[in-house]
Write a protein that binds this DNA or RNA. Structure first.
Lengths: 157, 157
DNA sequence: CCGGATTTGGTACTTTAGTATGAACCACAT
DNA sequence: ATGTGGTTCATACTAAAGTACCAAATCCGG
């Protein structure tokens, strides 16, 4: 039963495409007898058909190529309902101030200093000061190291 | 002249496809006037046109995503005994090259470009190139964003 | 009220990161 | 044979990050 299910899953889309194709052909035939009287519009009709089916071909190919996963591929935000509890002890040991924690939180989200400044309604100079002090306390020298360390210490979400 | 050459290289394929398309349309029109006398064969003709252009669409789409088949060939079966399993599907969609994946792995560890260069026995220039291409594929502009996105997509450990 | 810590912001400077462009090479497929 | 993608590296430039040092305002406990 499982084998059947797998096979079905594999070829289901193809069958659906075939069905859609058949429906389209039938409807096109009907359309033709309904509206195709003038000879000069026949060219246009054929052109439309050609373009439409080319687009359909592109779409089908895309469907076939893309590994069908609507789950997490292009979704921008992955829900982090994970039980990633913050290590409060490690956080306290660092003696970070309120602002420094805020800044760190934005740094790990990939914010630039300018973006942090705008988010907190501060100047870039101030952010740089906080960032610099933050690095001293975290014992790192660069942004990337700070992010890595913050995650490893589990002091950020 | 150099600028023209660059642009030409970039858009050549698109122009070629457009040209072929135009040629096909013209030839189809000629064919129609040559052989399309009987009314009942018009249906068949339209069907052929539709199928042909659908195939053309498939072909074009395949050309556009051609490189995927090479990469995805050997990464089909991946054992995920990892605790923190990485999203192979999302990873495949990004079409990152081998080097780009390596560089990304070191970036999320907080390595500087110089450190990455030393770790991989390459020059900083090369690392910068890889990093730049990586950012394009990840659709980000900075290191921190790349780290954040890589973690959210779960394409790194 | 005083004093230390925090917060804010500035100037000046160095370092790192990032972009744009070009070139050369190789592997591989058409 | 030719073309394409990937890799490597270079130069030249701009942007962002980071350091060092300073100084003022604010907050808060003793």
């Amino acid at each position: 039963m499982e084998a059947f299910h797998r096979i079905w899953k594999k070829w289901r889309n193809l069958l659906v495409y075939g069905f859609i194709l058949g429906m389209l052909i039938i409807s096109l035939r009907l359309l033709r007898w309904k509206y195709m009287i003038a000879d000069q519009s026949l060219e246009i009709f054929i052109g439309i058909v050609a373009l439409f089916f080319m687009g359909l071909g592109v779409w089908i190919a895309m469907q076939l190529v893309k590994t069908k996963s609507k789950d997490s591929a292009n979704t921008e935000s992955v829900p982090d309902q994970e039980l990633l509890s913050i290590d409060e002890i490690a956080l306290k040991k660092l003696q970070l101030t309120k602002r420094e924690k805020e800044v760190l939180g934005l740094i790990v989200k990939g914010y630039s200093n300018l973006e942090i400044a705008e988010a907190l309604h501060l100047s870039v100079s101030t952010i740089k000061t906080h960032v610099s002090n933050l690095y001293s306390k975290l014992d790192v020298k660069r942004r990337g190291q700070a992010i890595d360390k913050a995650r490893k210490l589990r002091i950020v979400k």
